[in-house]
Design a binder for these strands. Sequence first.
RNA 1: GCCCGGGUGGCGGAAUAGGUAUACGCGCGACACUUAAAAUGUCGCGGCUGUAAGGCCAUGCGGGUUCGAGUCCCGCCCUGGGCACCA
Length: 826
Amino acid sequence: MKDMYPFQEVEEKWQKIWAERKVFEAADDPRLTKYYCLEMYPYPSGRIHMGHVRNYSIGDVISRFQLMKGLNVIHPIGWDALGMPAENAAIKHGIHPQTWTLDNIAHMKRQLQSLGISYDWSREVNTCLPEYYKWNQWIFLKMFERGLAFRKKSWVNWCPQCRTVLANEQAAGGACWRCDSGVEQKEMIHWFLKITAYAKELLDGHKLLKKWPEHVLLMQKNWIGESEGAHISFPLMRSSRTIEVFTTRIDTIFGATFMLLSPEHPLSRELLADSPDKEKWREEMVRAVRDARMKKEQEEAEKEGIDTGKKAVNPFSGEEIPVWIANYVLMDYGTGAVMAVPAHDQRDFEFARKYGLTIRPVIAPADNPVLEEPQEGATEEYGVLINSGQFSGLSSQEAMEKMSGFALTRGFGRKSLTYRLRDWGISRQRYWGTPIPIIYCERCGTIGVPYEDLPVELPHDVKFTGEEGSPLDKAPEFVNTTCPKCGGKAHRETDTMDTFFDSSWYFFRYTSPHQKDAPFDRAVASYWLPVDLYIGGVEHAILHLIYARFFTKVLRDLGCASIGEPFPHYLAQGMVTKDGAAMSKSRGNVVDPDEMIQEYGADALRLFILFASPPEKEFAWAEDGIEGCFRFLNRVWTIIEENRDLFAEGAPRTISRDTSAGLALLKKTHQTIRKVTEDIGKRFHLNTAISSIMELYNLTRKEKDSLRQDREGRTVLSLALESLIVLLAPFTPHISEELWERTGHRDVLARFPWPAFDPELAKEERVTIVVQVNGKLRDKFEADAGIGEGEMRERALALDRVRSLIGGRPVRKVICIESKLVNIVV
RNA sequence: GCCCGGGUGGCGGAAUAGGUAUACGCGCGACACUUAAAAUGUCGCGGCUGUAAGGCCAUGCGGGUUCGAGUCCCGCCCUGGGCACCA
């Protein structure tokens, strides 16, 4: 290609100047209006991929735009640097995880810099450094003190591939979120964070998240899974024990003809103590249930039950009902026991049918109050209560109120809320994570490492064998320690933290990344937070985004933070695809950003990735597309170079309104400034902002030769060209800076004020009025913008075409839309 | 099964508050410049019909509301995603 603009030279030059002049370093100055633009920090896997390029390009446009608008912008970046790939590399290739990670970071940092993203590198954080993870430990200890971090023996999700434990969120659907292999169940002692204590607030906080995509809020809402209902206790016959259940359908309680316990329920074992055969059977059932949990695509298992032979009393009806153990009752939801209402719950119906248990309808559809045993299946709809003692005749809604009130006064129940959300298991049996700062002393028990001893650093010299168990277990100099309380022999916790812990508060750390006495400076954090715009992939909708919201609330309750919601505005960026599928190594459809930068430059790559589709939608890679953007930049370069003399001329800034020659271009210029300002600042539609800049270029090119003929025309032309450079700056910052300099400007464009538009000039003076007859487009006419309704109507009716179409028929109605349209109904 | 998105030219997409559907780009065709190609520029490109002016049809399919529907409502189809024995 001939006459290419020297993008490589230009891009390197400006990246250097920005860095030298510290153009993007944010000032912690509370007098300034701040703007916090954040993109999800990357895992340093080795190379930047197109998803990163897209994410960071979107953020960069917003950041640069707000900076030019005069705001004090903080635009930080860092590294989510702990995690398993580093350790896997160590096992496979014998490289230390730290070496591997730091090398990757160095490489990726160069890549990000070559994209020209406007990061404040002085605020870079790296979670694998003790100066960062020390504060993970600090936060953990604060949580431990408050009972928000606790240890519990439980069945946990175990990924055999990653050889570590996964949180429920990370094992959704029975598959590991990282490697996709099937998850097994394993019983272990494990550290948990009490996220369930914040379930209600995490849900209610959604009301404040008005600028989140609806579907993300919905996913979180479903994940938290609040259910309104009641807890009811059923006394066990010939025993002082009760069985507590949770139900959302207390209105059906007179139809509760048996009870079910989860096979894992502690009472299940107890009730079978006198029948060893059944106990063996139950143990088998427990095993089967746990096996089923790790299957990826499990079919709904056949319902199985064991009759305990014991009876409980329905506290409402006084009826004695059998207690069964059933494989479909979950231990970790509600109380692990349910009242079974086979007439009105499909699962219980199937179970009752199989074992010949009583099915008694107690709800009749409002329009058909018949008492009949259901044949086909349960009727789960609300209706009118029948066969329900003193509550018969009430509607389901009324009954739920009255019956829970009744239970409360009689002392065997209460209204309640139950959540699907489980506590967050954070223990990982791996090396490359934050050591959990806990010491076990035979005498003193479980003790937090004293704050002054933080950080508990990872020992550098350990063996990475890939065998089961954490490498830390085999590092005696790490494990063996003394009790900080009694000074006796003790050992350290060897589990490390889930890396989602790190990313749950990194956006706080950016505000004072070098703070030595606290995770962050409270005052500075209060100035910068909340994040004004958070951009990242929707795959983190229910992992990272819930954890980060949870941490923010905990930090607030610890007195560290002054906000409850970290991200009032979240932009969920779409996937990058090629040939109809997500770019991935296994598919072999990966396009390497470096190659594209080599061939077309960072500006062309950025422009294309932003132009091809709006940020929240999927983006399909096409080689032809980037080529088109590259050609556009060349054309811009050429038109500016060819007209540089205009800028040297020092043309007058003022242009008379009635300049006939340049008026069209002058208007277009102001309209484009308006459009680009709104598209970036209000709508986040970067693709349409770019297309309007292209339109401005097209008109400029068309009119340039005639405009050069006179003085005023040259002024209009130079204004249009200058606007072109400035409006492009957030998208293609390097070429813009270079052209800005070449047109005689001295200061860096990145800090140049964003242009204002003249609303009068941006207004269209002539409009096209569309004329419809019976709703069909038939004709148009030109008119002054201020045309009144009466005149519009008159002129429309006077049109020949309209007259012939009406053909003398009476006009029934004329609809006029100001400056737009006339519709004549005959 | 339940809950959300999405479906517009050959392609990526635009239409911001129910008011000119297909902006902008890619691609394609013709032409100009050129020895030639690239680049650049000019013109054209939803379908059918017509010499033309024009007409008819078209935003996944079928209905509806409205003077007017890509946009709102109802029912389908396809597609992507989330959840899935949650009592």
